[in-house]
Amino acid sequence: MTAVAVVLAVVAGGAYGAEALSDHGRRQLPGPAAAPSAQTVKVKQTDLSDSQTLSGVLGFDAPVTVKGTGKGVISRLPAAGSAVSRGKPLYWVDDEPVTVFFGDTPFFRPLEKAGTTGRDVTVLVENLQALGYELGPRPRQSAGTGGAAAGTGTELTTGVLDALKRWQHDTGRKETGTLDPGRAVVLSGPSRVDTVSAQLGDPATEEVLGLTSQEKTVTVKIDAGSAGSVHRGDKVTITLPDAKNVPGKVESVSTTVQGKADDGTGDAAASTPTLQVKVRPTHSADVAKLDAASVQVAFTAETRKNVLVVPVGALLALSEGGYALQRPGGKLVGVETGLFARGLVEVSGAGVKEGDVVVTAS
């Protein structure tokens, strides 16, 4: 009997121990995964802008070459970086200054005889007036008598010729009352000497120097497919190398496409078609210390004022079409979507207002 009792006790103890071990094992197993906690956000009212930021290069425009005219040799040249202003010498020929005038027609003949008319006379008249010289009775506009080259322009009067003499006297020139085309160069506006190609002693008819605008611009290449969103006059933000943001404006959008679409041949020469955009800083002083630099330009294509926005992850696509927002309790509220930008989306609808709490996946 004792043996039997011992055996029963052992069996019972083994059964109890097995149950205890089983309970211990179950306690060590991980429980079922908990449902992820829903993230929530509030519907906000703000301005939403669709923008893109592209790399650009700050610098001066490509230089325009100035070629001399007339007889003589170059006897003095400006330094690279020099400012070019109206009424000031640009370079010297036979030790006489070649003066800068502003306009759109070069001097192509001597201006010395009253009664001559043409656009070149107009340039002389406008520059003498801009330099502060009285011209007497206002020169009249008339059809030129110098052929097609002269075209419609201004008449050269004795008052203009007298003013020319006074200007020659005031600037230390010979008072001839004649403007020799070899002693004046007509430019489109204030400029800067970028390069000097001539050497002292070269003939006056050589290429003398290269000029750029005095103001710097930023050149940006933009995908031709999205260039329609960029327009002349658009305001932009330029980020300089020191991370400073300065305002700018689109000056021009090229109509010439550069590059070509990938034709699938793997040709390394194939590239995305682009257009060149010129951006000018609003304040030249902002970039005065930089001659050239890589910058970033932010273009804003569209701005929506005072609209309701949520993260894009808060949108739920409905099986019947359209979108909805979900309340924390599970209720769905249908919305209309507007502008998508910077991970946010514009929403509207009768059931949504600023401050509403909605579920979002991001």
Rank of each mutant, 00 (worst) to 15 (best):
D286K: 07
V335T: 02
L344D: 08
E251H: 01
P281T: 09
G259I: 04
H283G: 00
V257S: 02
V253T: 11
T274M: 13
Q326H: 03
A314R: 03
T300N: 13
K331T: 14
R327K: 15
L308T: 00
T255V: 12
G264K: 07
L339G: 01
F340Y: 15
T300K: 11
A292L: 01
G343M: 06
L315W: 06
Q276P: 07
A292P: 00
D286C: 06
G329I: 10
Q276K: 15
V297Q: 12
F299Q: 15
T255R: 14
V250L: 09
D262A: 15
N306C: 07
V345R: 08
A301E: 14
L344R: 10
P247Q: 11
T337K: 07
S271P: 01
V310N: 02
V335F: 02
G334I: 00
A298K: 15
V307M: 02
P281S: 12
L344M: 12
L275R: 11
T282R: 05
L339F: 04
A292M: 02
R342W: 04
K305Y: 09
L339Q: 03
G343C: 06
V309F: 04
E336H: 09
P311E: 06
F299L: 15
T303D: 07
E251W: 01
K249V: 14
L315T: 09
F299E: 15
K260L: 02
L332P: 00
G322T: 00
V277N: 13
S294E: 05
T337S: 07
S319L: 08
D262R: 13
V335C: 02
T300P: 11
L344G: 02
V297T: 11
A270K: 11
T303E: 10
A314M: 04
A317M: 03
T272E: 12
A324N: 00
A268Q: 10
K249H: 01
A301F: 15
A324T: 00
L325P: 01
A270I: 02
G330C: 04
V295A: 08
V309A: 03
T337I: 12
V312I: 15
L339H: 03
K260Q: 12
V295I: 09
P281C: 12
T300M: 13
A314H: 03
T272A: 13
T255F: 10
T282C: 01
A285K: 06
G338W: 05
S319D: 12
G334P: 00
S294L: 03
V253D: 10
L325Y: 03
V345L: 08
V257T: 12
T272V: 15
L315M: 09
K249L: 05
S319Q: 12
D267F: 07
G248D: 11
K278A: 14
A285G: 00
A341R: 08
S284D: 04
P247V: 11
G330M: 06
A293N: 06
A317Q: 08
P281R: 13
